[in-house]
Write a protein that binds this DNA or RNA. Structure first.
Lengths: 219, 219
DNA sequence: CTCTCGCAAGAGCACTGCTCTCTAATGTGT
DNA sequence: ACACATTAGAGAGCAGTGCTCTTGCGAGAG
């Protein structure tokens, strides 16, 4: 039942856009709106569950795309496959992507399990670097000395490193972080219309940008 | 009168977040909601005007920050000043930033004058490169050969070049475009909460990222 | 001094999230 | 098999929303 509600809600989300209406979902199910409150405490509650599912669906897709590269030492292929999976999922689920990475709803605070699910995608990307570093394929040689990063940023980086990519040098995590930001920067601009009249060859541009990021990481 | 409505609307937007209520604006002004319809055809209409104002306010801030660097050959200083102005404006007007660069409202199409105002910021950034190229300070030597870019992307780049940065080599525009995306990628992640528990030293991180982008553009 | 016209008010429609009460059905325990 | 308890859904209703249409007021123009 809960699953059916979520499915219908996702359909309405895809059809109508961001402002999901509980009553519309109930109508689609042949129910009355108050009946939904037996399964979800509020509209925000339903949205939170959809967000959680979204992060996990994206995480699944990205993990599968990374795992599809059987030769685990082909770091660039893994990076391109994983980032391509992010874009494919985002294009196929635009409203959900907007829910995850668009402007947050006003008084909404992400619960703890949400941030764990959200971390899955960056963890996959970081693992590519971690694997490469462990195998000696990628070194931190070509990167900015840690000393040149502001101390406060280094603190943040080492904390984040311990959480998602243990053992990775800070310089490499920093490079990966930069590429992660570029990935979602490009994607958000594409999906939110900021690339209209600027770049029409979206897929080619995205691929080229991800190649560039691979160069930057030295993979 | 129109100006007063917009001011109150901006306040409500800053206070309440994205979902602006016409009735609330009217209430704040001691009017009845239907009276607002004499000045704005619809809520979307008011939002469009606010968006237009937002792009122009941001454009003003960025242009001023760029112009504040008197020695026009100090390209890096201009870049850092301009991008810092973007961040400062975004932090000071978070709800408006979300309106401009967050998830778009469902059936909303940006009018032509909006995209002209939106172009002001990238134009400033592109002008930094154009000036540097014209003065021979920055060359396209260190960049990816145009031939290595997909043909469709090159077409987009040359069209965009003609619109906002005449005379700039495509490789340089491409580098600038990448940095532009990174700029708003970092900013959106910061403002939309995606950097929570990842980077706490926001200002330092942003500054360091923009330094990195300056390196990437060779300025 | 009348007349017009800009401006705001008010009522009302269809919609929203959400709460509360009530009924019908579906088990469950003895 | 019968009484009981639990649960799923229906319905009414409240306060809020965007928006439309009609009404009335009041100031400026002729």
């Amino acid at each position: 039942m809960i699953e059916e509600i979520k499915t219908v809600a996702r359909q309405r989300l895809a059809a109508e856009g961001a402002n999901l209406s509980l009553r519309a979902v109930a109508r689609d199910m042949g129910m009355v709106s108050s009946a939904l409150y037996r399964y979800f405490a509020s509209r925000d509650d339903l949205l939170t569950v959809l967000i959680l599912d979204g992060y996990n669906a994206l995480g699944d897709a990205v993990e599968a795309a990374d795992a599809a590269v059987t030769d685990r030492t082909r770091l660039r292929a893994r990076w391109l496959s994983a980032t391509r999976a992010v874009r494919d999922w985002a294009l196929a689920n635009q409203a959900e992507y907007a829910l995850l990475y668009g402007s947050p709803v006003p008084g909404y605070a992400a619960p703890q399990d949400t941030i764990a699910a959200a971390a899955r995608t960056p963890i996959v990307l970081a693992a590519i670097l971690t694997d490469g570093y462990a195998a000696g394929i990628v070194t931190a040689a070509g990167f900015q000395r840690p000393a040149s990063l502001p101390a406060a940023v280094r603190t943040d980086l080492s904390r984040t490193r311990d959480q998602i990519a243990p053992g990775l040098p800070e310089e490499l995590l920093h490079a990966g972080l930069t590429c992660w930001l570029q990935l979602f920067g490009v994607l958000s601009f594409e999906l939110f219309g900021q690339l209209n009249n600027v770049i029409d060859a979206r897929a080619e541009f995205f691929g080229q940008q991800m190649e560039l990021m691979a160069d930057l990481m030295g993979i």
